[in-house]
Design a protein around this nucleic acid. Structure first.
Length: 577
RNA sequence: GCUGACGUGGCUCAGGGGUAGAGCACUCCCUUGGUAAGGGAGAGGUCGCGGGUUCAAAUCCCGCCGUCAGCACCA
């Protein structure tokens, strides 16, 4: 009989728990579910696990697997279960939270009994012996709540075959090689100064060129899509943040300070209030709607130290933010337009595989259930009526409204949450925004928040990893590097170089006193799209030779034609070189 | 923020109670090379910061800061 990989993973979690019990004795067991690449199990025990324990635990697991132990299911009443797990406080906690009349099942594996719904394999001989591997140790809070005790979690990788396990590990190593925290400094894009500005980016010339390219790209697209662009203050009085409600909810994450006359100012953690004040200025008519207000807004949030992660989670970043004000009647159309817009933008970067998640009302929220019903339905209608597939994330919405999240898969299959579209039922109210309707009455506008790239920093981090540093031509900070074969050809190289310059193409010279091979290697490592090689032959013919970073080679190319080709690729934003 | 590991020249890392090493990168010299590392020489660090133990600390202990892996958080 063959079992699903999930059943195998979960059964192995029991085996590992049993092994830990055999080896370490007094252990309090928490939970051990299967996950995407294997399973984990949370333990509470005196002994501090270290990776040196892995070999021992794996050895014990294999012993258990070989012993042909049976997984035996037993059904108990709640009282019986409580008695059985009397010395297991976490299991007691779980049992007590089960419905009173529910039958409780436990699974026995030799001397180890675990509270569990199952299912499991019949016998440990159904389990693989060489396609699992203990992976890492981590702290994890009981019930995922930071008020609770932190337990020790062991993660393990489990696949159906050894080959799949090895492939997974190899894929992970590949991902590590593309880590933007490595590639970024190596390609001279940016760096961090942990001592002076943890979580804030120092953009170098090349990185900032890409950064500006991204903003220009969005700016152009937004203009075409009927947005206006504004710029609002970064430092504003605390009163504003109290009005918006963010001081109360996120005050601890704000950068704020007192002036000499004791006023408290706050560096903006988001751009919304600025957008509200722009709308609130003057009297708006229904004829002004929909009003799409974009801002490339730099924000600062004092994120928890443990949350920082390269460009993906920083304390200072720029959002490609926009607030769309519209009437109730325009609400769905605007949402649909935005969703389509988002897909169009992602496609431009080669991200075709985009998933939508719809997050519904959280426990802590404002607004009546009626309004939530209407807004959630509005989002679903837009998606349903236009054939978009989506997954619902119950209770994951913002406190002020439901949201759509756009998750894209990169070139090596990893998922990233990027853009978001959110309905805000709070801010128009708090800022008392209104417009004059056709019948002369004052109406409250509907307001959508939306960010497409999310943050420029984050998006760029993901692009680095997605492209493995090989940016498409239109984004690449340096399009080509000029490599004369020997010193004798520098004069000709300069002549060619000037032609590229004149055409507005960013190109570097490498006239350093190194062998040509060395200079080619350097250019390859910098992932510069084109190497332009000129030697005696090229000089005699008045042509150039091109080598691409993908090792494509073409000799005797005509200069003006090649320049034209590059300019074309840049303006078309071609993804291939 | 929590748990654990870690913090040595720009980068990758070795060493380890008696006042610092390698490779790459950098500078200079030789070499003038046809598609991923030519050769030589040189410069560069009070070993994250602060305190303690010691005749002596980069090395041991404590605190702080930061990084990494998770967890929690993510307006």
């Amino acid at each position: 009989m063959s079992y699903s990989i999930n059943v195998i993973r979960h059964s192995l979690a029991h085996v590992m728990a049993a092994a830990v019990k055999n080896l370490f004795g007094d252990v309090k067991f928490a939970i051990g579910p299967d996950i995407d690449n294997g399973f984990y199990y949370d333990f509470d025990l005196e002994h501090r696990f270290s990776e040196e324990d892995f070999a021992k635990i794996e050895f014990e697991m294999r012993k258990i697997i070989k012993s042909d132990g049976r997984f035996v299911r037993e059904a108990l009443s709640k009282d019986e279960a409580l008695k059985m797990f009397a010395d297991q406080p976490y299991k007691i906690d779980l049992i007590q939270n089960l419905p009173a009349d529910e039958e409780i099942s436990v699974y026995k594996l030799r001397n180890f009994v675990d509270l569990c719904r199952g299912p499991h394999v019949d016998s440990t001989s159904d389990l693989p012996r060489d396609s699992f591997k203990l992976d890492k140790i981590a702290g994890a809070y009981w019930r995922g709540d930071s008020n609770n005790k932190m337990l020790q979690r062991i993660y393990a990788l489990v696949f159906a075959t050894k080959e799949e396990l090895d492939a997974y590990i190899a894929q992970r190593e590949e991902a590590e090689k593309r880590d933007h925290r490595k590639l970024g400094p190596a390609l001279d894009l940016f760096h961090f100064e942990p001592d002076y500005a943890p979580g804030a980016v120092f953009w170098h010339d090349k990185g900032y060129t890409i950064y500006r390219n991204l903003i220009e790209f969005m700016r152009k697209k937004q203009q075409d899509a009927g947005y206006i662009e504004v710029k609002t203050p970064r430092v504003m009085d605390r009163v504003l943040w109290e009005t918006s409600g963010h001081w109360e909810k996120y005050g601890q994450h704000n950068y704020s300070g007192k002036t000499e006359d004791d006023k408290v100012f706050c560096i903006r953690p988001m751009n919304c209030p600025g957008g509200m004040l722009i709308f609130g200025q003057g009297i708006k008519s229904y004829k002004d709607l929909p009003l799409r207000v974009a801002e490339f807004g730099e924000v600062n949030r004092y994120e928890a130290s443990g949350a920082l992660h390269g460009l993906l989670r920083v304390r200072e970043f720029t959002q490609d933010d926009a607030h769309i004000f519209c009437t109730k009647a325009q609400m769905e159309e605007e949402c649909l337009k935005t969703v389509k817009f988002i897909f169009e933008i992602y496609k431009g970067f080669g991200f075709e595989n985009v998933e939508i998640k719809l997050s519904t009302r959280p426990e802590k929220r404002i607004g009546s259930d009626e309004i939530w019903d209407i807004s959630e339905k509005a989002l679903m209608d837009v998606l349903d009526h236009n054939g978009y597939k989506y997954e619902i994330q119950e209770g994951e919405g913002a406190f002020y409204g439901p949201k759509l999240e756009f998750v894209l898969k990169d070139s090596i299959g990893r998922s990233w949450q990027m853009g978001t579209v959110q309905l805000d039922m709070s801010l128009p109210e708090r800022f008392d925004l209104s417009y004059i309707a056709e019948d002369g009455s004052k109406q409250r506008p509907v307001m959508w928040h939306r960010a497409i790239l999310g943050s420029i920093e984050r998006f760029l981090g993901i692009l680095i990893e997605n492209y493995d540093g090989k940016f498409p031509l239109w984004l690449a900070p340096v399009k080509a590097v000029m490599i004369p074969i020997s010193e004798k050809h520098i004069e000709y190289a300069d002549k060619v170089y000037e032609e590229f310059k004149k055409a507005g193409i960013t190109i570097e010279k490498d006239y350093s006193n190194e062998s040509m091979q060395k200079r080619i290697r350097d250019a390859q490592l910098q992932k510069i799209p084109y190497m332009i090689l000129v030697g005696q032959k090229e000089e005699d013919e008045g042509k150039i030779s091109i080598r691409t970073r993908d090792n494509k080679q073409e000799n005797g190319i005509e200069i003006s034609g090649f320049i034209k080709e590059i300019l074309n690729k840049i303006s078309n934003r071609d993804l291939d070189i």
